[in-house]
């Protein structure tokens, strides 16, 4: 995928305050290039869930976003603990988040399911002890979103 636009973000894993920075930036950029609101929302949700996951589980990571005329590809990489059972992690309501995280309103076990729901393609590449790479593709609707 040769992208017209490539954006790169570092997700700070130290606290939750900055989570949402990358997703808000993506939202703003997609709006500026004339992408339809539904696609923007889907991308923003995917990015936010990715950011939150990296803060909760992996002490941060990186998010690379590629935009071309077909759609948006998001590559979220971390050096966290990895996911032992991806099928289980994909189930709505399953979470390994700690109590303190749940008190903030996270850990509902909806992060990965939301990413799956709002993307057109989702690929999880993970290894326990090494880290996780999640690739998400959100395509523009046909006949629209060609503002780029």
């Amino acid at each position: 995928m040769s992208a017209a636009i490539h954006l790169s973000y570092k997700v700070d894993g130290s606290d939750f305050t900055g989570a949402g920075t990358a997703s808000a930036a993506i939202k703003r950029i997609l709006r500026e290039i004339g992408v339809d609101m539904d696609t923007i929302r889907r991308c923003a949700i995917c990015m936010y869930e990715g950011e939150i996951n990296m803060v909760i589980h992996a002490n941060g990571g990186t998010a690379d976003v590629y935009i071309d005329t077909e759609g948006v590809k998001m590559v979220l990489k971390d050096n966290g603990p990895g996911i032992a059972d991806v099928e289980q992690a994909m189930q709505e309501g399953f979470s390994t988040a700690k109590e303190g995280v749940r008190d903030l309103g996270f850990g509902a076990g909806m992060g990965l399911p939301n990413m799956k729901k709002y993307s057109d393609e989702m690929l999880i590449d993970t290894e326990v002890g090494k880290g996780t790479k999640v690739t998400l593709i959100v395509r523009f609707p046909k006949g629209g979103g060609d503002g780029a």
Binding site: F16, T17, A19, I45, L104, G105
Partner: peptide, 30 residues
């Protein structure tokens, strides 16, 4: 539950919550 809200609330909704931390702003915005 913020992930629940971000996945289910529709654009234009008024969102009612008892959460009061900074992440509420990010979820509301997105």
């Amino acid at each position: 539950l913020l992930s629940w809200v971000i996945g289910r609330a529709a654009p234009g909704d008024a969102w009612m919550t008892i959460m009061s931390n900074v992440n509420v702003a990010a979820v509301g915005l997105l």
